[in-house]
């Protein structure tokens, strides 16, 4: 088997959310930590779209930021195309790798510098990595990139506020492609957009993937979008991956009780007028998560083992009840 393009191994991140030192000394109280990501591992093959899906507080965005190197992990490692992103790899290797990794952010209003012209925004990676020499060559390349994402080369002289949300996201995609990136981490790229615009952006991302053989790590809370985009999916709950599975299988035969609940909860257009039984409970406070399997308070199959022992990820699912055969699993069609 080919070596995976990106390997994420036992990634952890804790945030110190204690009160300031002086407050702790005077008021008493211990240091407090929030485990945002707690031992997450997955592989991404070259050219595939791996999606992380989960509700707020699941840690999916934190994983994304650690993978691209915006946030140092508290533990674990990320290896992309054989180059370790954490620790003491020669910084030259990492600098070379950096050009090939880009990110698309959720809010296109915050991800473009409002004081910069679009052509300067798109040209920034080209200039930073010294990919081209001379203003003319750079301007031509920027025009090419803008055309590629469905804008006009003449749009380069405008400022971000002159564009709609969807057009801004196109600019952000052009910037991500400017350094000839091959791995793009997309953090909720369409959550801030209207559905018809979302469709435009998702189609564009698909087309670009087909054209350039891009590899995507796709973060979203929207199951339908994830299903549309992903070849493989990891479902996150409170900082852990509870299930990893091929895109189609996950929806056809979900194993983990949380995945089942999520799929049941998504309002679906095909459900028009139909009734359904809603699921109960909410995500617990991540500062003080339940012991054992963090899903146990909401899980109809929880027993004592679930309440005390963290289930390992075996055969793509982290659930004692599935491992013990207490939950029947539908066979993927």
């Amino acid at each position: 088997m080919e070596k995976p393009y990106a390997q994420i191994n036992n990634l952890r991140r804790t945030f110190d959310i204690s009160k300031p030192w002086l407050n702790r000394v005077i008021e008493g109280g211990e240091k407090q930590y929030l485990k945002a990501v707690d031992g997450v591992s997955f592989d991404i093959a070259r050219g595939e779209t791996f999606a992380l899906v989960g509700e707020s507080g699941s840690g999916k965005s934190t994983v994304a930021r650690m993978v691209v190197g915006l946030l140092p992990p508290s533990g674990g490692d990320v290896t992309i195309d054989g180059v370790p992103m954490v620790g003491r790899a020669s910084s030259q290797d990492r600098q070379r790798l950096r050009r090939r990794i880009q990110m698309i952010f959720q809010d296109p209003y915050a991800s473009l510098n409002p004081r910069w012209k679009v052509e300067d925004i798109v040209a920034e990676p080209i200039r930073a990595f010294r990919l081209l020499d001379g203003d003319k060559a750079i301007r031509e390349r920027v025009g090419e990139l803008l055309t590629l994402v469905g804008l006009h080369p003449a749009d380069g002289i405008k400022f971000p506020h002159e564009f709609s949300g969807g057009q801004r996201q196109r600019v952000a995609i052009a910037r991500a492609l400017a350094s000839n990136a091959e791995f793009i981490v997309c953090d909720e790229p369409t959550s801030a957009l209207d559905v018809s615009v979302q469709a435009q952006i998702l189609n564009l991302m698909r087309d670009l993937q087909d054209q350039f053989g891009l590899t995507y790590l796709f973060i979203s809370h929207n199951l339908a979008v994830v299903r549309h985009m992903a070849t493989r999916i990891g479902v996150m709950y409170l900082g852990r991956i509870v299930e990893i599975s091929g895109g189609r299988e996950l929806f056809a035969a979900p194993k983990h009780p949380y995945t089942r609940m999520l799929l049941d909860a998504v309002p679906d257009m095909n459900m028009a007028g139909e009734e359904r039984v809603p699921i109960s409970g909410e995500i617990p406070n991540p500062i003080n998560p339940p012991s054992g399997c963090t899903f146990n308070p909401r899980c109809p199959f929880a027993n004592d083992r679930c309440r005390s022992e963290v289930p390992p990820l075996l055969d793509g699912v982290a659930c004692h009840a599935v491992h013990e055969g207490r939950i029947a699993i539908a066979v993927a069609a």
């Binding site: 190197g69 990110m103 959720q106 915050a110 991800s111 473009l112 510098n113 930073a128 910037r175 350094s179």
Partner: peptide, 11 residues
């Protein structure tokens, strides 16, 4: 804001 993250990303 994320435009700073984007700038950090390209080193």
């Amino acid at each position: 804001k994320d435009y700073i993250a984007a700038a950090r990303l390209i080193g």
